[in-house]
């Protein structure tokens, strides 16, 4: 039955087909599902290598519109080819307006923060009319969760197993993308669907590069039970670790200001990838640093806004 959800903003049509091979409790799938509900089937998803490569496995696809798999580095370039070709066909009358498609790039953080950065930069600098969804599960999830440029400080991954975890810091992709002055840019989280839906709807009606970084809690790579995905997604926002924000017309605005933030411990403790910071004894140094960085971030926000 089609029913208007209790909150009328959240559509319920199950446009993206069930039955994909993603892990049980996949945060990225939840994000993509919501995007698909709003963007609809008059879309072509241009997919980079990552967990979502296997959204389609011959002959099964969850999409009701179109999809193409490219490679890890060049999904935005693939989007360029599709958009340009559609524009040519429209201009020459070989494609009716009603046959046009919204072009959507779908990549993980491994591609977005690293290998795909050059082609993404190129697409933005050319003002490509497309939507980019980065599902950020903070590691190379599809290969067993090695650290990526999106891995947070201190996290244990398949390639940072030591007692202090990943020594680097999560790259500020939002700022890198913002420096290109795209039409629209936002962070979202599937655990806050109202904020997410509002942003996708806003972007849908704009033209030009519209960029999203979606937090995608990963039971398999972050080591938590699949049932906790949403809870962890909520805590990411409530602790201030995952700021929900948007960038429009040269300005960054935070769309959820949590006045009483929970300590980062609450978020970190739920995930096996941070358990070495709590057992056998608390690693005060790293935990303090993580908390301090979050505090500093929000202090800057308050002073700036």
């Amino acid at each position: 039955m089609q029913k208007t959800s209790a909150n009328a903003l959240i559509p319920t049509s199950h446009l993206l087909g069930s039955g994909t091979a993603t892990c049980s409790g996949c945060g990225a799938l939840a994000d993509i599902r919501l995007f698909y509900e709003i963007l609809g089937e008059k879309t072509i998803f241009v997919n980079a290598a990552g967990c979502m490569t296997l959204l389609t496995v011959y002959p099964f696809t969850p999409f009701r519109g179109s999809w193409i798999y490219t490679a890890m580095a060049s999904a935005p370039a693939g989007a360029q080819g599709v958009r340009d070709a559609l524009d040519l066909l429209l201009a020459k009358g070989r494609l009716g307006k009603e046959e046009d498609l919204q072009v959507v790039v779908l990549t993980g953080d491994g591609s977005a923060y690293g290998m795909g950065l050059s082609s993404t930069s190129g697409a933005m600098e050319r003002g490509l009319d497309f939507i980019y969804i980065c599902y950020d599960n903070e590691g190379y999830g599809n290969t067993g969760h090695q650290f990526s440029a999106a891995t947070p400080h201190g996290a244990s991954t398949a390639t940072s197993r030591g007692m202090t975890g990943f020594p680097g810091y999560k790259k500020d992709l939002f700022s890198i993308w913002a420096a290109h002055n795209p039409t629209y840019l936002a962070t979202v989280s599937g655990a806050d669907p109202l904020d997410m839906v509002r942003k996708i709807k806003k972007a849908k009606d704009l033209r030009g590069p519209r960029m999203f970084i979606a937090l995608a809690p990963c039971p398999t790579g972050w080591h938590f039970d699949a049932s906790q995905t949403v809870k962890i997604g909520k805590l990411a926002v409530q602790t201030g670790i995952w700021p929900l924000k948007e960038y429009v017309n040269g300005k960054v605005e935070h769309t959820r200001i949590v006045t009483k933030k929970r300590p980062v411990d609450e978020y970190l403790k739920m995930q096996g990838r941070f358990s070495h910071l709590f057992e056998p004894r608390r690693n005060e140094k790293v935990l303090d640093e993580i908390q301090t960085r979050v505090n500093d971030y929000w202090k800057n926000v308050e002073e700036g806004e």
């Binding site: 490219t70 370039a77 693939g78 360029q80 080819g81 599709v82 070709a85 066909l89 070989r94 082609s119």
Partner: peptide
């Protein structure tokens, strides 16, 4: 990549 996707889109 763009050449391939444009060809696949029919130009």
């Amino acid at each position: 990549t763009a050449a391939g996707t444009a060809a696949a889109t029919g130009v």
